[in-house]
Structure formats: structure tokens, C-alpha cells
Design a protein around this nucleic acid. Structure first.
Lengths: 164, 164
DNA sequence: TATTTAATGTCAATATATTTACATATTTTT
DNA sequence: AAAAATATGTAAATATATTGACATTAAATA
């Protein structure tokens, strides 16, 4: 049952209103909205620590095993998939709260190593437990199999977007 | 195989490092990043129209069948799941480009009806085709069944977040 | 009818995110 | 060693998003 049979007067380049379009539209629109809700809910979840969900990501990236001695701004930018300039702004705010610091990279005079301060490590330990609770709420009623499947879809979408 | 059997010295409230946590962490982290990439890729996709992907949402909401005569800012805010203030900013930019306008609501002196201008309708017709191409790229290699399943997961996550 | 309550839109402050542009430091090349 | 190319970090302009505050209009209540 092709589209042209249904609406012969509406060619593809005028009104792409077939099922596939509506399905895609609904899916990606909700993906958008859900990501936004996740950010808002996450930020509310750790409001007592004065940390936004983006800041979770940065702190988590700095606390990764094997990266305790420091990470360059560029590495952070690539890991988080956001611009260097955005990372810089995030770091300025974290530094203002005494959570992270930048020290010169002994092996590259151009670069600086971003690392958690001792206070940052304390906050990380509180944060990771709070985040874990958040995950439990956000993903309650998902089986392990569903989580795997869900992530598989996200990764596929992400790869497709990477081609743009 | 409970966690306490694996690492008896690491109680839940210190290092929640079990499989479930890592799976959740990876999934939501990638969800975040993918949404961000989607915004960036989408905005690049319609850069020749000078429209960002958030503006797609607003224009699309104003072009919905049955809402051509206008929608209140509050309705827009609820539909898009973003704050009234954010909608206001988006509308200011759209109005600056002659795409939308606000007219007094004859049935409610407090409210204003947001509607597309004639030029806005012209742009919408160009936009919807470009968006359709974007969807095709973003969701290539997804079967219809997978799209349905994917959206089911997103909706479930969204509902869980709504409880926070 | 007068007062309170609620809905609506907007302003201001702040955080997140992008692109463009540029200064500085390090490599690489000549 | 000097010049060109590259990597890195920042600054500025703009868009998106939030919360808090507030003015105005409408609706509910006294």
C-alpha cells in the first residue's frame, strides 16, 4: 500500500505525511523532551549539593579510574561530546565551588590537567550515591534485557547522527 | 548472587558499583549525549533556513492541524514541556524573523494567541521536508518494529522521570 | 460590588551549549 | 635556528533552558 495510492495529489516533496514520518517525528520529539526532563529532574535531585546534572558528568569524568591525576580540557570535551568552550564554562563554575582545579601538564606546556580537589573527591562520594538512587527511580520497571536493548537503540541513533 | 557476597567491604552507601548501576549510568549518560548531538545535528541540518531544532518544535506545534488560529504561551509551554519563560524567548526570536506573531485572545484578556504569520507558513512547508530528510538519516536502519519498541522505552523513562 | 485568588505573560539572573575568533605555546618544517 | 603549522585554552556573541519575581487581567468569593 504505497503512499501515492493513498493520496495521489500530495507528492513527497509537499506533504510527507506517511506513517514512517509520523512515527519518526513522535519518537525524536519525545526523545528531545525526555532528555530535557532528565536534565531538570536530575538537577532537582541533587539540588541540596548545588550540582546540576551536567556537572555530574564532568565530576564523573574526572573521577574515572585511571584518570585521577588529571584530564586535559580537550579530552573532557571529546569524552562528554560537548565543545571545549562549554567545558571551560562548566569548569569555571566547578572551580568557583572548589570542586576542581587546573594544574600545568608537566608533559605538555600548552595543556593543563583538570583534576578534582580533595573537597571534590568528598563531594563525588556523596554524589555517586545520590545518582545511583536517581537511576533506580528513572529506570525502575526496566529489566536488564530492556536496558541493553534500549541502549542498543540509543547507540544506533547516535551513530547515525554522527554521519551528519 | 547478591552484591554483599561479591564485595562485603563495600556497602551500598559507599560505592554502588554493581552491574545494574553501570548499565544505568552508561545508558542515561549516552541518552544525554545523544540528545545533545541531535540538537546540534538538527540545527546544522536546517542552517540554511536559520532555524534551530528547538525552533522546529515551536513552529511544528503552531502548525498542528486544529491549532492554526493560535495557541496560548501556556499551551505551548505544556506541549513542549519547557518553561513559559523559555517559550517566550523562543517566540521573541521567531517574531524577530517574521515567522510567528502574538495577537490578543478575544476570549481571554489575559492571554495572547501565538500563530504563524503567512511567511511562517511558507517556511513551515520548506521546513517539514527538510525535517523529514533528517529523520530518514537519523533513523535509517531502524525497522518500524524497532521504532515502536524504542519509543515505548522512551515513554517509560519519561513517565518515571515525571514522578520526581 | 469589593476583595481575594488564580492565570497569564514578561523581566532578570543564572547555567548550559554552540560557533567564530584569537592569543599563546608547542611541534614541524624549512 | 627561524618560520609555518598545529594544539590548546579563552573571549565574545548568540540560543536554549531554568527559577524567582512581578504586573496585569480574569475568575471566585465574601
Amino acid at each position: 500500500m504505497s503512499k501515492s495510492e493513498i493520496s495521489p495529489n500530495k507528492p513527497y516533496d509537499t506533504v510527507p505525511s506517511d506513517e514512517r514520518f509520523h512515527l519518526s517525528n513522535r519518537l525524536l520529539f519525545r526523545f528531545f523532551k525526555t532528555a530535557n526532563c532528565m536534565h531538570t529532574a536530575g538537577t532537582k535531585w541533587t539540588s541540596e549539593l548545588k550540582l546540576t546534572s551536567q556537572q555530574w558528568s564532568v565530576i564523573g569524568a574526572l573521577a574515572r579510574p585511571g584518570h585521577e591525576e588529571g584530564v586535559s580540557v580537550n579530552e573532557l570535551s571529546e569524552f562528554l561530546l560537548v565543545s571545549r568552550q562549554n567545558v571551560n564554562g562548566l569548569l569555571l563554575r566547578l572551580e568557583h565551588h572548589g570542586i576542581s582545579q587546573r594544574v600545568p601538564d608537566p608533559r605538555d606546556g600548552r595543556a593543563k590537567l583538570v583534576q578534582l580537589t580533595p573537597q571534590g573527591w568528598v563531594i563525588w562520594k556523596q554524589l555517586i550515591n545520590r545518582i545511583s538512587e536517581f537511576y533506580d527511580v528513572a529506570l525502575v520497571n526496566f529489566t536488564t534485557e530492556e536496558l541493553v536493548q534500549f541502549q542498543h537503540f540509543i547507540d544506533k541513533l547516535q551513530r547515525n547522527l554522527g554521519t551528519i
